[in-house]
Design a protein around this nucleic acid. Sequence first.
DNA 1: AGGCTTATTGATAATGAATGTCAATAACTT
DNA 2: AAGTTATTGACATTCATTATCAATAAGCCT
Lengths: 126, 126
Amino acid sequence: MTVKRNTWQKDAVKHALGEATGFVSAQELHLVLRNHGSTIGLATVYRALADLAGTGEADSLQSQEGELLYRACTTEHHHHLICKNCGKTVEIEANEVEKWAEKVAKHHGFREPSHTVEIFGLCGDC
Amino acid sequence: MTVKRNTWQKDAVKHALGEATGFVSAQELHLVLRNHGSTIGLATVYRALADLAGTGEADSLQSQEGELLYRACTTEHHHHLICKNCGKTVEIEANEVEKWAEKVAKHHGFREPSHTVEIFGLCGDC
DNA sequence: AGGCTTATTGATAATGAATGTCAATAACTT
DNA sequence: AAGTTATTGACATTCATTATCAATAAGCCT
Ligand SMILES: [Mn+2]
Ligand SMILES: [Mn+2]
Ligand SMILES: [Zn+2]
Ligand SMILES: [Zn+2]
């Protein structure tokens, strides 16, 4: 229905997200943008990130503290290997796990299976 | 250092958690307890659940809405298959995935790997 | 059984992420 | 250039969770 419009705010959020090394929160991203001189509002950062996650251009996950974190990523289905200390993130594919998840779901009579898989650890630099 | 004391409040929370069918929030559990006539305080429910999760007697995960949910469980390492609709939960083991996670972590030079694996779907009754 | 120490409780206040509000602004269309 | 309306952002609001702290009671000692 409603036509989307392009704004420098959306571009700024997308760009800043691309610059980040790992997963970042909306609050953090807003601070980064402000520190670079941007006048963008906090609510706008939240909205832009939610949109990016909706289109699949960004991945999101909950931090241990319950904060919602975002990260620029490829649009194909994938998972993450994340450093608990520095946040460094590696995208990984998990075909074995995909099949396993479907098998287990079917075995217990569950339909439309989806799944979350994340690996945490300490990277070589930490 | 500090010695733990036994209270009817801790027992009540543990028992109520055992009665629940799937994952429940501290708020929900507090309501259930109150509706059964208990005078237990909300903060106490939060503390008891955090303790149970600390000892491994309860498992916790974040709901899609960001709420922290708890569930009584076995103390061995395991994962969950959860109905998106009714919350019915099945404990599953995932030896294949355990090995896979360790392999992937090592391959990327990550130490002390841990992981989160949850499968969601619609159960046979939904 | 009574007394003492202090872990625990719970009403309340405080925190903080996330969302709602709405007048002002600025993308698009014509 | 003018009009329509999606978007913005300052601000208020919601709500889960945590912090306070005086009152209570669990465990220990005599
Ligand atoms: Mn997958
Ligand atoms: Mn596992
Ligand atoms: Zn690291
Ligand atoms: Zn179900």
